[in-house]
Design a protein around this nucleic acid. Structure first.
Lengths: 154, 154
DNA sequence: ATGCATGCAAACTCTTTGCAAACGC
DNA sequence: GCGTTTGCAAAGAGTTTGCATGCAT
């Protein structure tokens, strides 16, 4: 949990430092993103925040996410088979798991990719700014569902 | 080069085996994708193929790519900062490099990710179907351009 | 007080779909 | 010949933009 509040802090500080104003909407978006365990889309955040900010606009969410990504404070994971961009408040290289059935995105703990990052940096010649390490497949829950539906057909 | 013609073969065979017809358009799309070094978008392929097939439709390109992805013969890399989906004829897990300035996508040779794949499969509990291992940054060419433009300002 | 940010709606872009004509098998 | 595939155009979906109002600094 310490990690998460650090992330929030970094986001707010980053926005402020680059001359952007800390409006209630921006703070709320950062909070929601820093605290979320799954990796929400712009629309996910919008829906969640609309409760507290009935006038919150989807455009504001997009604009804020855009600023955060440009500042390197948040990374855009790309779509998860659902055609929507998922965002990740954790910019440290790590592995994401995408379920192609339920479109959920989660982190994989316990696999260190720092050595990989070093090797890529050395061999590529690129000035690396981030990474998206995504594995696709069926999550355990959806595997069970598929098995159940096959059993049903038989 | 052997690899590339094998890929083409696998794509055509895969389409045929699943009952899809080998139309000239589909063959040409597979060829262009299997042979391409960079990772083209649907529009890239469309533009390239329109020379040989003046009536080629962008919709046909999308439909064919969709079929190839569904059959697991091609993988969709997601966007490269340009908002368009890039496709990769190589479905073996490997590392892609995306340049955030010129939006080019290339493979990184010489970094083996099979051990990583094994570890992810074991720890995640997912039935893995594929991976997208993408590092973002500035390619050597664009780094030079940035340096040049900074020098110019001074 | 100044000028950036919000929020609405309209515009934009990539992608998908519907359907008549054409073609692979 | 049958049924799929093509290609056009129009629809769809996610994201971005323009602009008047409101608010952080």
């Amino acid at each position: 949990m310490i990690r998460r509040s650090e992330r929030l802090r970094a986001m707010l500080e980053g926005l402020r430092a680059s001359g952007l104003r800390l409006t209630p909407q921006r703070v709320a978006i950062c909070e929601a993103l820093a605290m979320s365990r799954n990796h929400p889309t712009a629309y996910d955040l919008y829906r969640r925040l609309r409760r507290r900010f009935p006038t919150m606009s989807l455009a504001t969410v997009y604009k804020t996410l855009d600023a955060l990504v440009r500042l390197g404070l948040v990374s855009a994971l790309g779509d998860a088979g659902d055609g929507m961009v998922h965002y990740d408040g954790d910019t440290e290289p790590h592995i994401n798991l995408v379920c192609l059935s339920c479109h959920r995105v989660q982190d994989l703990e316990g696999v260190d990719v720092r050595a990989l990052h070093q090797r890529v940096a050395a061999r590529s010649g690129y000035a690396l700014q981030g990474a998206r390490l995504v594995y696709y497949g069926l999550c355990p829950d959806c595997q069970r569902k598929v098995e159940a539906s096959i059993a049903e057909e038989a």
